[in-house]
Design a protein around this nucleic acid. Structure first.
Lengths: 345, 345
DNA sequence: GAGCGCTTCGCAATCGGTTGTGTAAAAATA
DNA sequence: TATTTTTACACAACCGATTGCGAAGCGCTC
């Protein structure tokens, strides 16, 4: 332990007068090594403070037991929960997690993809940057049989694993819930179309639900946000409340946005949920704390992380570029809380 | 790009009829290589889709440009911001970040420390697990001149870098602010003594401020929590409000706890801040959203992450185990918002 | 044109495990 | 006892980039 140099299997071999190959095999309970030798080697390794060098093993075996995670940011509750799920699963199989933040920049995403490849990760889990339209920087993984999983914000035209929720159905469910509460004029906030299909799907669900229940789709009630910040939410909410014909419900595709709407309503003396029922999305921690509690759609972040990691760990050995990759759909649920519960059930 | 095998410098060397050493040097603009050769090599490398193998370089050079981060969890706002700061700084110097969660378990922390060592990280940034009392599992880093930085939750008896805030002074400032608002009976929630010095320091600051202003320290107003959850906060708050002599202020060492107190007060018809002024800690996102807005103490998470990463990147070359390691103190500020602002300034 | 210095590059060892192949010795079978 | 099988281990190549050392090529000077 007081050494200033790493202890290697060579050191152990020398001490025990054995070959390094024997040490290596003994340490991993290889069947060609006798129990006696295995015990002796392990004991000595322990005594000498041996810690295997992952780099050497990775270099030789061309596998690193490392999962690369490439996401916009780690500070959003959804994404940090996603990481948590990945990390927990990885840990169980002795995998290491490397994390990189694209900050929603396409260029950074390209750089970091290269960096992950450079680190010879065993697999990659990615949630795309807002800016990203071209996904060719992921081909290096596909071409080298490095499993690639897209989560949540996924490209539509890429044959690889995907772990997602059914955003259409989630949007439908959320909207239907408001309709069931008696709302007739339901507003919806969404993201610019360039932000990919995710928000469009939710919007599609919203529109479909309205149509199915013979409600008009009023374009005035659909506002597209630049970004999903509290301030943007306030701005949009005020825009809604400034209409002649004010909405009586809102489906917001994010809890922060929903909260901003609830609070803006309160400030303007509009009662939530009686005059204005709100449902958010994600089930962020804040949704349970805010007053009134926020109804929301669960977004199983940690489960999605676990599922993604499991795909990678399972698919390490056999998979070919051409093979069709499955899409994993995870469930969402409507979580009814105060902000949309007109009937106080 | 269509290869199924990684392109190596050997492949480039063969193509150009040069030695691998020349390729290696050319790629990093070594001065002994002519500009012409450098250009040619880089162009070919690009064409062939060469991506350096970090493992090989790391193995040979015994340096990996990797920072290991070992923290309780990634899902707390403070810690995910810390990670963000680390990652941003690392990125600038082309470092990679490996993240592991101890989930506040001592055993996991020991395991993961070994795993980080096994990965031959260039440096380690750690915020200790709640359970951790013995820190000998970090000696492997110190003994091998791998820079080690403790952040926020740090051991007191370990000679290594530390990045912290002055918790005593923060506690003092928070309490003094309440006193300035006219509070006479200020409660304080804290963590069990086994949770290390951090919360004790805040408490010390609290006590000191009371004494300095001739207020009595009432043990009934100091409650030690098992864990920092919303529910625990509610329980403690109710305990406070059940006293004959109710407090008129609260310093909570975390925003979640503070929010739970504010909401519990509201439920019981106690007016915040008039009857009960509250100040939290951390400046979590929720503090600005909750109604009334929560006064709090800023906890510069991202800055702390940046500072930690910088220490590691700077200290890679020359430092010896015996050298004294500096402690970096970062500033905190009192952020006065509605929950403690009796004078509506 | 011999000597000197500088530029440019090749050779080969090295980092530390992993693993296919080879070979003794021990055990089992004939 | 001879032969086959099994056990237990050693040898050495290998993964891919790095780097100290050596040497060839070139221009220059005297």
């Amino acid at each position: 332990m007081e050494e200033n140099k790493h202890v290697t299997i060579y050191d152990i071999a020398e001490r025990l007068n054995l070959a390094t190959s024997t040490i290596s095999r003994a340490l991993k309970d290889h069947h060609t090594i006798s129990d006696k030798t295995i015990k002796k080697v392990k004991k000595t390794a322990e005594e000498m403070g041996f810690v295997p060098n992952t780099l050497a093993a990775g270099l030789r075996g061309n596998k690193t037991k490392t999962i690369g995670v490439l996401i916009p940011t780690v500070t959003q509750p959804f994404l940090s929960s996603l990481i948590s799920g990945i990390e927990i699963t990885a840990q169980k199989s002795n995998y290491t997690v490397i994390i990189m933040q694209s900050h929603d920049s396409y260029e950074k995403e390209v750089d970091m993809a290269k960096s992950l490849y450079s680190n010879r990760v065993s697999g990659v889990i990615c949630s795309l940057a807002m800016e990203t339209k071209d996904t060719s920087h992921f081909k290096q993984f596909s071409n080298n049989n490095i499993p690639l999983v897209f989560v949540d914000r996924v490209p539509k035209d890429y044959n690889t694993f995907r772990v997602v929720i059914d955003n259409f159905s989630a949007g439908y469910k959320a909207t239907k819930h408001l309709i069931d509460q008696g709302c007739k004029r339901i507003a919806h906030l969404t993201a610019g179309s360039e932000y990919g299909s995710l928000y469009n799907e939710r919007k599609r669900g919203y529109v479909e639900a309205l149509k199915d229940h013979d409600l008009v789709v009023d374009e005035d009630l659909i506002i597209s946000l630049e970004s999903f910040t509290y301030e943007e939410g306030v701005k949009a909410s005020n825009q809604l409340f400034d209409l002649k014909d004010i909405p009586d419900g809102l489906f917001a595709p994010g809890d922060i946005i929903a909260v901003s709407a609830v609070q803006t309503a309160k400030k303007r003396g509009i009662k939530v949920p009686d005059d204005f029922a709100v449902i958010g999305f994600n089930n962020d921690p804040i949704s349970q704390i805010i007053d009134p509690n926020l109804s929301t759609i669960t977004h199983p972040a940690e489960k999605m992380g676990k599922a993604s990691a499991e795909i990678i760990i399972k698919n390490l050995k056999s998979l070919k570029n051409e093979d069709a990759k499955e899409i994993t759909f995870l469930n969402t649920e409507v979580l009814v809380r105060e902000s949309s519960d007109k009937n106080k059930l």
